Computed example of a mutant assay.
Amino acid sequence: MGRAARIALIVASALASLGFLALAAWQLQRLGWKQDLIARVEQQLQAEPVAPPPVASKADEYRRVRLRGRFEPREALVQATTALGGGHWVIAPLRLDDGRAVLVNRGFVPPAAQRAPGQHAVPDGPVELTGLLRLTETGGGPLRANVPEEGRWYSRDVAGIAAQLGVADKAAPYFVDEAADPAQPQRYPRPGLTVIRFANNHAVYAATWLALAAMAAAAAAYLVREERRRASS
């Protein structure tokens, strides 16, 4: 290997070490962000339910809200996979006392309990429920796009479902996962199946990048020593 090639290898090793260090720093930043997210969500889950806001941001996701109104006799089914297996979420519009509509995920129905859209019984008269505010899920599922014109939904797309159900003009730009009421017998649609779990492997990723940075730096140092030995011999 010629001297120019050896110098190029030294430079490449040093640059690789710096690149790995940058990736480790990025993962540490992500770790801080994820820890803040988890702490915020845990705090919101322990807080008292609040009135539904007119709009919502990322900071509002998983906030507990209290809704009062009447369910409208229409719904959409969204494909779902839960701890109970595969089936559908039942999404129904709740007309609030002020005229706004909030799409409520009333819960999960397995194939054996599934009926045609609009045929899952809703409470008759005014209702009050609590749930978790969730942000819209546009697009669809992995490799499957929503087909609004056919009523096939693979994600809880608020704007699309609200349009299908005829409440787009009054609908809040989010949906609410209804919480289970322990005082009530279990029923279908089954509420309370929201999964709140955040993957937090950033510390492991950061350690991996730091190890690679150290290896690249050690390789660069070894090559520098070899080059100096060659130059002095």
Rank of each mutant, 00 (worst) to 15 (best):
1 M>E: 14
2 G>K: 03
3 R>D: 14
4 A>R: 12
6 R>K: 11
6 R>P: 08
7 I>K: 14
7 I>V: 11
7 I>D: 09
8 A>H: 02
9 L>I: 02
13 S>E: 06
14 A>E: 05
18 L>Y: 10
21 L>A: 13
21 L>T: 11
25 A>E: 15
25 A>D: 14
25 A>Q: 13
25 A>Y: 06
26 W>Y: 12
27 Q>D: 05
28 L>K: 04
33 W>P: 01
34 K>Q: 12
38 I>E: 10
40 R>M: 13
42 E>Q: 15
47 A>P: 00
48 E>V: 14
49 P>M: 11
49 P>K: 12
50 V>W: 01
50 V>A: 06
53 P>E: 04
55 V>I: 13
55 V>M: 11
56 A>R: 04
59 A>P: 06
63 R>G: 02
66 R>N: 09
67 L>H: 03
68 R>Y: 02
68 R>K: 13
68 R>M: 07
70 R>P: 00
73 P>L: 01
78 V>L: 01
80 A>N: 10
84 L>S: 15
85 G>S: 06
87 G>E: 04
87 G>A: 08
87 G>R: 00
87 G>K: 00
92 A>W: 12
96 L>K: 08
96 L>P: 00
98 D>Q: 03
99 G>V: 11
99 G>E: 07
99 G>S: 04
102 V>A: 00
105 N>G: 03
109 V>W: 06
112 A>Y: 10
113 A>I: 06
114 Q>A: 03
116 A>Y: 12
120 H>P: 04
121 A>D: 14
123 P>H: 10
125 G>A: 09
125 G>F: 15
126 P>M: 02
128 E>F: 11
128 E>S: 12
129 L>P: 08
133 L>Y: 00
134 R>N: 13
134 R>W: 08
135 L>Q: 13
135 L>S: 10
138 T>Q: 11
138 T>D: 12
138 T>M: 09
142 P>H: 06
143 L>I: 14
143 L>P: 05
144 R>H: 12
145 A>Y: 14
145 A>P: 02
146 N>R: 06
148 P>M: 02
149 E>I: 07
153 W>T: 07
154 Y>W: 05
155 S>F: 07
155 S>G: 04
157 D>L: 00
158 V>T: 12
160 G>A: 11
161 I>Y: 08
163 A>Q: 10
164 Q>F: 02
168 A>F: 02
170 K>W: 15
173 P>G: 04
173 P>L: 07
175 F>C: 05
176 V>D: 09
179 A>G: 10
179 A>Y: 09
180 A>T: 09
181 D>W: 09
182 P>Y: 01
183 A>R: 07
189 P>M: 00
191 P>V: 12
193 L>A: 05
194 T>A: 06
195 V>A: 07
198 F>S: 04
200 N>I: 02
204 V>I: 15
204 V>C: 11
206 A>C: 13
207 A>Y: 02
208 T>I: 13
209 W>H: 07
211 A>L: 15
213 A>N: 05
214 A>N: 00
223 L>C: 05
224 V>H: 03
227 E>Y: 13
229 R>V: 00
229 R>M: 06
231 A>N: 08
231 A>G: 01
